[in-house]
Design a protein around this nucleic acid. Structure first.
Length: 439
DNA sequence: TCTGGGGTCCTAGGACCC
DNA sequence: TCTGGGGTCCTAGGACCC
């Protein structure tokens, strides 16, 4: 997330954000395709059907917390007829894209914040609508009509206020799904803030809420009364910024283009504990393959591979072994074989026989942009000698990307290329059509 | 050999988010 | 018996170099 260097300087005046958030996203997705579930209290379960990662309104009302293990709510489930569904992330990803598509019809200035939330910059589209609340209702209706999913809309002068507004819209029926704190009177907004626990604010988690409580800061309004400077002293720049955001001073910008990930993780718990090296190796290999796909999809190469294995920390009486190891790569890579080789080397070093492992995973870090194909073309030439490299490199590119990518190319040296292309270095070429093509 | 300070890089861990 | 899987940013401390 890009932020201002100092919390004191607002991005600019006159910002207006709308946060559109799907209600009980995974549950709502399942209900779109099985309308009979509409009235059924239900949860969607994590991998291995371990815990509840989404709860319908009825289940939330029963006090079931996010992440509650399914086996712990058996009695409750029987008593209230709670249905449980295994998660289907392909479906949810698809539904998420559809929602974003609808939102883009309102404005291109949009940040996809998570699978079920987007921020919209709405100051520019306001003109076409009589007021913000009716704009929010139109968005709601259109998403519902197009995708079948229910959303709530929160509107405010900063992202944090939009988040807060969304929270109010969800929690209080009187808002009918759209809350605009920007058009509220100050007195009214402060009233709502005084009724909202400080821990509900975006960026205030359990630990900080606890520390704030010790300072007699219980509600959002209490936090608003403090000086951001003193908050900086005690909690750091993040909370200071948050205080400004609550005051309507926008410090967090809209991130329209998602930045490339800085790390890519693939990990999973085992259904049953695993002790054998072979089984761990298989799991690690699978994670490497998954991670490498993610890596390639964002055109990155990894500079290091971390492998980690863990025993079941929910069983503190059993022997515990949590260990990870970082294997740096001499040449950053996105190649599954290269990465797997490195991972196996690491796994061998941390594996200990006799433990019951419950989880394994890999992480790719030190990510960098993958060199453009043109670059590697000429890199190969440099390495292998002037003339042999090009056609060979071409073959490998074609086999990798499909044979239609480059039909033919001139053989020649880097110097030839520089002559033809006006003496530019090929390293600065990023376009396919600038490759030296021969008919 | 002693003394001091500043900068960078890496790692680990904590806190937060969905 | 059964307890998710991703991410981000910030800070502190140690190693190392000048």
């Amino acid at each position: 997330m890009t932020v201002n260097m100092t919390a004191h300087s607002p991005v600019s005046a006159g910002h207006l954000f709308a946060l559109v958030d799907v209600n009980n996203f995974y549950v709502s997705c399942e209900r779109v395709f099985a309308p009979k579930l509409e009235e059924v209290p239900m949860v969607v379960l994590s991998n291995n059907d371990g815990c509840a990662v989404a709860r319908s309104a009825e289940v939330k009302a029963l006090g079931v917390k996010m992440g509650t293990p399914w086996f712990q709510m058996q009695d409750l489930a029987k008593k209230h007829g709670i249905a449980a569904y295994s998660s289907n992330y392909t479906l949810y990803g698809d539904m998420s894209s559809r929602v974003v598509e609808v939102l883009r019809t309102f404005t291109p200035n949009l940040e996809v914040y998570s699978i079920d939330e987007s921020f919209l910059a709405i100051e520019t589209i306001l003109k076409q609508h009589s007021d913000l609340t009716s704009l929010g209702q139109i968005i709601r209706q259109k998403v519902k009509d197009t995708t079948g999913l229910p959303v709530c809309v929160g509107i405010g002068a900063s992202k944090t206020l939009a988040k807060l507004a969304n929270h109010l819209a969800k929690k209080h029926a009187q808002f009918a799904g759209v809350c605009d704190v920007d058009s509220m009177s100050k007195a009214q907004l402060y009233q709502w803030m005084a009724e909202t626990a400080v821990g509900e604010v975006w960026g205030i988690g359990k630990q900080i809420a606890k520390k704030l409580k010790a300072l007699h800061i219980h509600t959002v309004f209490d936090l608003l009364q403090t000086s951001p400077q003193s908050m900086r002293q005690q909690f750091g720049v993040v909370i200071e910024r948050l205080c400004y955001e609550l005051r309507g001073v926008s410090c967090l910008q809209l991130e329209e283009v998602a930045p490339a990930k800085q790390q890519i993780v693939s990990s999973r718990s085992f259904g049953k504990p695993v002790s054998l090296m072979d089984e761990l190796a298989q799991s690690v290999a699978t994670h490497i393959a998954r991670g490498a796909e993610k890596l390639r999809s964002q055109h990155s190469v990894a500079g290091a591979v971390t492998i980690f294995i863990q025993t079941n920390s929910f069983k503190p009486h059993e022997p515990q072994h949590h260990q990870s190891i970082v294997i740096p790569l001499n040449d950053p890579s996105d190649n599954t074989l290269t990465l797997t080789t490195a991972a196996m080397k690491g796994l061998k070093q941390i594996y200990k026989a006799g433990f019951k492992y419950k989880k394994a995973g890999v992480m790719f870090s030190l990510l960098a942009d993958k060199p453009t194909v043109q670059q590697s073309l000429f890199d190969d030439m440099e390495v292998k000698g002037k003339s042999a490299g090009l056609m060979k490199a071409l073959d490998s590119i074609n086999s990798r990307f499909g044979s239609a990518v480059i039909r033919s190319a001139a053989t020649g040296t880097k110097q030839d290329w520089q002559m033809k292309s006006g003496n530019r270095s090929p390293n600065y070429t990023t376009r396919w059509d600038e490759l030296p093509i021969v008919q």
